[in-house]
């Protein structure tokens, strides 16, 4: 499948997504669906994992059903596909590494599952990259497939500028400027790279409170027991 048919499918799938995005991470998911996923996957994340971002089972099923999963080979030995389901991983749009490289001047768009964790600058670095495209200055020539970007050490990157003002419409009415989308999608990728973080912290507060109470009680208890010997 070429990038363009993929894009078409995505745009079509979006009409089926009535999500009323409101948090940055939720809006960022839209940016991922409509923009980033044309080239990147998140192969360790399942469509169903989006339910903790507030997507309903129906929204998830619809989104998944519009994506294709490899499904063995047909009688001629040619690869077959099937619609994805909620438990399937969000795969790269390229069926294999070679196709990915072919479509991107020899580079493979990295998987986004943990990118905001493994990049030294984290999600902020992603945001900076998305915001730092500029016209190539006069006197500088870049190889084919390289794009001028001031966030990188060598001032160029293999990813074409992905964001344009107004390229999508947020259902909650937030103006979809490039800066807004860069913000949102990096918040989303941060959320993806730290699974269950909100839940982790919420439970952590209970656990530490409980332990503090236990510490207080055991402190009183041991002081009472030891008092006779002090």
């Amino acid at each position: 499948m070429t990038r363009w048919t993929r894009n078409l499918i995505l745009v079509a799938s979006l009409t089926a997504l009535p999500a009323c995005a409101s948090t940055p991470a939720q809006r960022g998911l839209m940016v991922f669906q409509q923009v980033c996923s044309a080239c990147h996957g998140m192969e360790h994340v399942a469509y169903g994992d989006m339910s903790s971002l507030g997507l309903s089972p129906d929204e998830i099923r619809k989104w998944a059903a519009d994506q294709q999963m490899p499904n063995g080979t047909d009688d001629n030995g040619d690869p077959k596909t099937r619609p994805a389901t909620a438990t399937d991983p969000i795969l790269s749009p390229y069926p294999n590494e070679a196709m990915g490289r072919l479509a991107n001047h020899g580079l493979l768009p990295p998987d986004l599952s943990r990118l905001a964790l493994t990049l030294p600058g984290g999600a902020e670095e992603i945001r900076q990259i998305l915001l730092s495209y500029a016209p190539t200055p006069a006197g500088m020539t870049l190889d084919e497939g390289r794009y001028y970007n001031t966030a990188l050490k060598w001032k160029h990157i293999g990813m074409p500028p992905p964001l344009q003002d107004g390229m999508l419409t947020y259902p909650d009415g937030t103006p979809a400027t490039s800066a807004q989308m860069a913000n949102d999608v990096s918040a989303f990728l941060d959320w993806i790279a730290h699974p269950h973080q909100a839940e982790r912290r919420r439970i952590g507060v209970y656990v530490v409170t409980y332990l503090a109470l236990m510490a207080f009680l055991t402190f009183l208890l041991q002081r009472r027991i030891w008092r006779a010997h002090r």
Partner: peptide, 22 residues
Amino acid sequence: ETPPSSDGTRRRDLLATGTVVL
């Protein structure tokens, strides 16, 4: 080993049971 104070015994028992239960 119980501290000699008269109401202390009861309090520790409550404390001890409460701590163990919790």
